[in-house]
């Protein structure tokens, strides 16, 4: 089954199954976020006298968040590229850059939330704010989980080096990270841009 051209992370039957299993899990995640988006579309105009999206969104900050997260997706790609070249140092550095960008994104998102609360839009204000904060919050919670998870994987990488197991774990984590980026693109388009325009 495996030859010398097979990437390291696919070189045992168990890691092949782990990677496939994670793809199936991402399928479930797509359903999860689709549900959040669908509910948001149902509730987005139900502001119940509270602020609407265009009253509170600051597009400049959101744009910076978007660039930070997109860049982090690129750097996690570079990390996996280093992994394929058996470059442990490159893998480690690019993953740390990815995590720092992720932390920067989170910092900005938390500030954004604080700003909204000051503007009188809390999660309890209306149907719109409930759906908005839950969609964004679920994404943000995923990013937070990802940062902690990948940090723990990096500890394992430092201890054990690039092996079939560590490489498959980091590969799976990078799939997760790219997925969060894709979700953010939908949030940026269908929550922020649509909210500003319509």
């Amino acid at each position: 089954m495996t030859s010398h051209t097979t990437p390291l992370e696919y070189q045992s039957e168990q890691t092949q199954m782990n990677i496939l299993g994670f793809w199936v899990f991402l399928g479930a995640e797509i359903v999860l976020f689709s549900t959040l988006f669908a509910s948001y579309f149902v509730l987005e105009h139900n502001t119940a006298g509270g602020p609407a999206g265009q009253d509170i969104f600051i597009l400049k900050d959101v744009l910076i968040e978007t660039f930070i997260l997109l860049t982090s997706s690129f750097t996690s790609g570079l990390a996996i590229h280093s992994m394929r070249n058996h470059d442990k140092k490159g893998l480690l550095i690019w993953m740390i850059v990815t995590l720092l960008l992720g932390a920067g994104f989170l910092y900005m998102e938390i500030n954004e939330f604080i700003h909204y609360v000051h503007e009188g839009a809390t999660i309890q204000t209306s149907g719109f704010t409930a759906a908005f904060f839950t969609l964004l919050g679920t994404h943000g919670a995923h990013v937070t989980f990802g940062i902690i998870w990948i940090s723990l994987l990096l500890v394992q990488l430092v201890r054990r080096g690039i092996t079939v197991k560590t490489s498959s774990k980091l590969f799976i984590a990078s799939l997760y990270w790219h997925f969060l980026d894709v979700v953010w693109i939908f949030i940026f388009t269908f929550v922020y841009l649509k909210g500003m325009v319509m």
Binding site: S39, N46, Q124, S126, F128, A130, T134
Partner: peptide
């Protein structure tokens, strides 16, 4: 959503505050 509505006072499903 049910948990948030019941425990944290959100309005996903209450008509009065724009829920459905």
């Amino acid at each position: 959503y049910m948990t948030l509505d019941r425990l944290f006072g959100t309005h996903f499903f209450t008509v009065a505050a724009g829920g459905d």
